[in-house]
Each structure stands twice: as C-alpha cells, then as structure tokens.
Design a protein around this nucleic acid. Structure first.
Length: 509
RNA sequence: GCCCCCAUCGUCCAGUGGCCUAGGACACCGGCCUUUCACGCCGGCGACACGGGUUCGAAUCCCGUUGGGGGUACCA
C-alpha cells in the first residue's frame, strides 16, 4: 500500500532475519507471566536463528525503579535468557532505555506533525461525553474526532482560553485486520478504535507512540506479547502505517498475543500474588531448568506425551504459531513435580554445588564452607537427589549430617511407634556397630550386620528394627537411607548417637 | 453499553474432518518394590460447555447461546 522508504537506521544481519524483543517496564518484582513472555520471545529468536532485543520501557518515572531494572536483569540471567542487543550489551539501535530516547521520539513526533498524521486535540473528557449525550449517542463511546479539522483560528481561540492540546493519531477510515501468530485473523471494525492520544499536553509521548517507534527503529519482525494488549493492536498498526509513510518504519511486524497466566480460579495473577513472583520460586529452590520447563508449558506443549525437556529441546521445537490461545493457570504442584524431575537429571556434583547456598540459607552451613563440609555435601547428595522437589528442602533433609552429636534433637515424632522395646534394639545395634572397625564402616558392612542381629536374630520386623536407629541417627522419623547415613557420619558419631538415644530411652524406662 | 479474545479430564498440554470406545503429564486413589521417606513400576478415577447447521463422517469447519477474560485513559 505504501512504498518502503529508505532506512534511517543501520541495518544489521540479513533482510529476513527474525528480530524479536522483550520490553518490560521496570515496575515491581519480575512476574512469571512477564518472564514467560521473555522466554517465548527468546525461544522464538533462537529457534529461527534470530536476535532478541532487550529494551526497557521506563517512560513512567513515577512507577519505574532502578531496583526493578536490576531485578529484571537478574531474572533473565538466572533463567539463561540471553539477548543479542539491548541494555547492558548495547547494539546498533541504542540507547535501549526509553528514558534516554527522548530526542529520538521528538524527532519522530515532528515528522508525524508535519505529515498531518497527528493533530492537536483540545477536547476534555467531559466535553466528549457531553457531545455524545447531546447527539443522543452512547456517552461511553470514546473520543469523537471533534478536533480533527480545527482551523488555525479555532486552535488559536482555544489556546487563548488557556488550553494545552494533546496530539492524537488520525485513525484510518477502514477496518483493521491482521493475522495474529497465535490466534489467526483478527479484525477490528472501523469506528471502534477512536483517535487516541500519542503525546501528552506536556509534550511527553505515550507508550502507544514510543513502543511502535522503537520496534520500527529496531527493525522488529515479530511482536510476541501478552494478550492484555491485543485490543490496542489496531492503534499500533495504524501508527505503524503512519511511521512507514513518513519513512521511520520499513515494514509492519507480525503480531502474536500470548495467553494470560492466571492464578487459582479465574483470576489473573496479580502483582502481589506470591505465585506471581519469580524470585519466590528461586528462594524455594526451583532450579532454572525446571522453571524454564514449567513456564514453557504455560500455553505451549513440547509433545503429545512428554513434558520434561531441556532448554535446547525447547529451542529446537518452539513455534509461536503452536501456542495455545487460551489462558493458563499456574499449578504449583505440577511446577514442583517438574522441578523435581530436573533436580534428578542434574549431575551429582552439579547438584551438590547448587545445594550449598540453600544449606547456608537454612543455617546448616555457615558463610564459610570448609572443604570437609563440601565433601560431605557431595557425598550426601546422591542420598537426597530423589528425595527432593525443591532445593530449599535440603536443610531439613541433610541437616542432621552437619549437626554435632550433642546438639542433635530427636523430634517427638521420631520417638513414637518404635516398637515394644526400642532400648533393646538400640543396645544390640550398639554392640554390632562397636564390632565393626572404623576403616570398614560402610553401608555394605552395616546393613547385613544389623539386619542379621536385630531382624534375624532378635526377630524384630525390619520396620521396627531400623526405626529406632533412624531416630537416633537422624533425629527424625523420615530420613535419607539409614546405613548410608551412618557411613557418612562415621563410627564414632554413629555410636554416640545410638548411645545417646539408648540412654534416654533406658532412663525413661 | 460498545469492541476484541477464549472455551478438551480438577489443572496444564496433545488432538488441526475419519487413526478418538479422545492421548500424555501433575494431582488424587489402589497395588508392587522397600530399613523410613522418596524414586521407579503397574493399574484406576477423570473432559470435548450447550444448541443448531455443513459433511458419508466433527472435539476438529460455520452460526448462535451460555460462561469466562481483556479493552474502551494525557497507564504500560
């Protein structure tokens, strides 16, 4: 419809290179819905060998914060969502923070004014409603285009009243149709999208203006964003057309609107909802692999019968057109289960490393971790790997291995249902353990010795034979495997713990 | 009010006219394994919102109804 004007920016890459962007506003803490959008854009770029541009839309000084900006970077890096151009890394179309692009917008605004695509509007909201009423129209209809063809004299008169005009875009006199990557063809009927404000009375541009300008200048080819702005797409398309006509944009990008991420029930996940806060997941011990996997499942499926996959597999198969258009609800249980699968997939040494900060946070390890402690964590890791859904469970699971014998507290729960004579069981266990030499103190040696003595010889059922030992060793009713735990603790410590509980039970009679 | 989007098990995802007596996952319920708890394995429960079309044939296409959601700002 319009001829493509000469580019005003430096083209990079090939003409058909896929260029997508992630452009959040730095308000509040990273939200899982927003992160899912980033992830899908990233996957789309990587799948097509394209570029991801990371831009910050900080045009709202009142709500934006530097802290939030840093959290955004943190979130992206944690999940391994890397970008090719944008904040921190630079690129040919910077700066990448809108707050630093004022001059660029002013330049485009002047062109838009000169070309007549935008015009001054003096109408107040009240006046618009009043005109609708007077004409017998629905007062809830939006702006009526009243100022479209004001003469210079009229404008001067309005100004003389002390009015400061906003600038509105002249919407085209036709339906606006586009093919949404996830929803197919969508048409907004002519007349349902009024001329909208693009420049405030104070001269500051609005989101609806700067977002398409930046997309145009950064030569974005695919706009993948949340469903919440689906209905503002006709406005952006109209503006984009104007930008093409004045030579700022080269071509219309494709749009795709990702479904909402909902909380329980039918409520959109709100900012203050704990399920919405990405960092809360990290604190609990979600690992990036699990998080990326789960987030990908919110609106997309890897295959008909598998839903555990890696980042590489996501990239290999991701396709924006295969995204499901209906809203997805966050299911913490499923997210946790998927995380658990990824924990099990981790190499032991890797898991051990990742456990460290959680053990520190849980008070099991101090700020300085000794080589010995590190080695013990590594040795204990295979024991807990299949018993953990979240890394944050590590302190509870492994704490007893790092507790001094005299500090070990046997929980009440671990004192119940220990059989008829747990003291006798412990006494026998002590005898057996004493007989095993320190350099042969292994699970392989302990298991047959203790089983032979207590189960076979004393005739105690396995459950009741090992229950008291478990309580003595770990202080809890549920623990990692008993014999392996004893091996890790070593003979002196194991013996001390067995004796301690034995003495206590004997004293209590 | 007007505009737009959405509609398969409790939840997420498969399904793009016949392979569907609708598949997988999580959750749930049984069972096996077993020194506890897990892991693993086996089995069970459980859905095409409704009504009309189109078609030899519809979860799949069309229309309507109902129900959800979003927009309608000098927010993004």
């Amino acid at each position: 419809m319009t001829t493509a004007p000469a580019s005003i920016s430096t083209p990079t890459g090939t003409a058909d290179e896929v260029r997508v962007r992630f452009c959040p506003s730095p308000t509040g803490t990273p939200h899982v819905g927003m992160v899912r959008t980033a992830l899908f854009n990233w996957a789309h770029a990587r799948h097509h060998g394209g570029k991801l541009i990371f831009r910050i839309e900080d045009t709202d000084a009142a709500r934006d914060s530097e802290e939030s900006y840093h959290q955004l970077l943190d979130a992206m890096r944690w999940l391994g969502i890397d970008w090719d151009e944008g904040v921190e890394v630079g690129g040919p179309d910077g700066p990448y923070r809108q707050s630093q692009r004022g001059d660029i917008y002013q330049d485009v605004i002047e062109k838009l004014k000169a070309s007549g695509h935008i015009y001054e509007s003096f109408s107040t909201a009240e006046e618009i409603v009043e005109r609708h009423r007077a004409a017998g129209r629905d007062p809830q209809l939006g702006y009526d285009g009243y100022d479209r063809d004001l003469t210079d004299e009229q404008k001067a008169a309005l100004r003389a009243e002390g009015r400061e005009p906003t600038w509105r875009l002249r919407m085209p006199e036709e339906d606006i149709t586009f093919t949404d990557m996830v929803r197919g063809e969508i048409t907004f009927k002519h007349g349902t999208t009024p001329d909208f404000v693009v420049v405030r009375a104070n001269g500051k541009p609005l989101y609806t203006l700067v977002n398409p300008i930046d997309d145009a200048l950064m030569r974005i080819t695919h706009v993948l964003r949340g469903e919440d702005i689906l209905s503002s797409t006709p406005r952006q398309i109209a503006l984009y057309r104007a930008l093409i006509e004045i030579g700022v944009a080269q071509r219309m990008p494709e749009f795709g609107h990702l479904p909402y991420v909902m909380g329980e029930g039918n409520k959109k996940l709100s900012k203050r909802d704990p399920q919405a806060d990405l960092f809360l997941y990290r604190e609990q011990g979600f690992i990036p692999e699990g998080m990326v996997n789960y987030l990908s499942l919110l609106g997309w499926g890897y295959s008909a019968d598998e839903d555990i996959f890696s980042r590489a597999q996501l990239v290999e198969r991701f396709d924006a057109s295969a995204v499901n258009p209906n809203p997805a609800r966050v299911d913490l249980k499923k997210a946790t289960a998927i995380n658990a699968d990824h924990i099990r997939l981790l190499p032991e040494a890797e898991l051990a490393e990742r456990l460290l900060p959680y053990l520190q946070a849980g008070g099991v390890l101090g700020e300085d971790v000794t080589e010995q402690q590190r080695a013990l964590v590594a040795a204990a890791t295979p024991l807990v790997q299949t018993r953990m859904n979240l890394l944050g469970e590590a302190p509870e699971l492994m704490g007893f291995l790092f507790t001094a014998d005299e500090d070990l507290e046997v929980q009440d729960d671990a004192l119940k249902k220990l059989g008829d004579d747990p003291a006798a069981v412990l006494e026998r266990a002590i005898t057996e353990v004493e007989a095993i030499s320190e350099d042969a103190f292994t699970a392989e040696a302990l298991e047959p010795a203790l089983r032979g003595a207590i189960v076979d010889d004393m005739g105690v059922k396995p459950r009741l034979a090992f229950g008291p030992l478990r309580s003595a060793i770990s202080g809890r009713r549920i623990s990692p495997p008993l014999f392996e735990s004893m091996e890790l603790l070593g003979k002196p410590s194991s013996l001390a713990r067995l004796r301690s509980l034995h003495a206590r039970l004997a004293a209590e009679g």
